[in-house]
Amino acid sequence: MEKFFALIGFFEILLVLFMQWEVYTKKIITTFSIASYTIAVFLFYLGIMENKYLVVILAVLTAGVRGFFIPWFMKKRIVRDPWREREIKPTISTALSILISLSVVIFAYVLYRITFYDSVHLSDGSIPIALILQGVFLMISRRNAFIQLIGYMMMENAIFLFEGYLFPALPFIVEAGVILDLIGIIAIAGIVVKMMKNSTTDSNEFDELKG
C-alpha cells in the first residue's frame, strides 16, 4: 500500500508540475481531471481494502465532482476556441514557476520530517502537503480564473489524499469535503461564467480594487 501511495503521490506531483508547464487552459483542465480520477481510484482501493466506507464516499465525491463535473463544466464554458484559450502573460515566467513548484515540494518534505515524522512514521506522508503547497502556488502564479480554481481544487484533492491515507478516522471529513465541493461549484456557477464573458477586458476598471 505504501508503494502504491508513493507512486500515486509522485504521479500527482508530476501532473501539477505539468500544469505549471502548460499554457493552454484546456490541457490544464484535462490534466486536472486525470489527477482527480487517479486520486479517486487510490481512495476507492484504500477504502475497499481497509473496509472504510467513509473513504469510499470521499473517492466517489472526488471522481464525480472534481473528476467529471467541474472539468466538464469548465470546458463547456471556455468561450473562445477551446484550443486557443490560454494565459498570455503569466505573472511568473514558466521555467521559474516550475522550479518554485519543485522547491515547494522539497520544503514540504523538510517540514514534514521535522514535525510529523516522529509520531506518524510514514516516510511518504509529505506528498499531500507538497501537493497542497503546489496548489497554492499554482493559484498565485496564474491570473486566469479557471486555473486559479484548479489550483484550489488541487489543494482539495491533496487534503482528501492526506486524510484518506494518514487519518481515515478523522471526524467530519465527509462534511468538510461536501462543503469544499460546494464552494467550487458556487464559484464556477456564479462567478466564473460571468467573468469569462468578458475575459478580454482590460483591468483598468478594477482601479477601485487597488491599495
Binding site: 496548489g135 497554492v136 493559484m139 480564473a145 486559479q148 480554481l149 489550483g151 484550489y152 489543494m155 469544499l180 464552494i183 458556487i186 464559484a187 456564479g190 462567478i191 466564473v192 467573468m195 480594487l209
Partner: peptide, 10 residues
Amino acid sequence: TWRYIIIVSS
C-alpha cells in the same frame, strides 16, 4: 467576489 472565494477558501 472571486477574490473573496479564492483567497478565503485557500
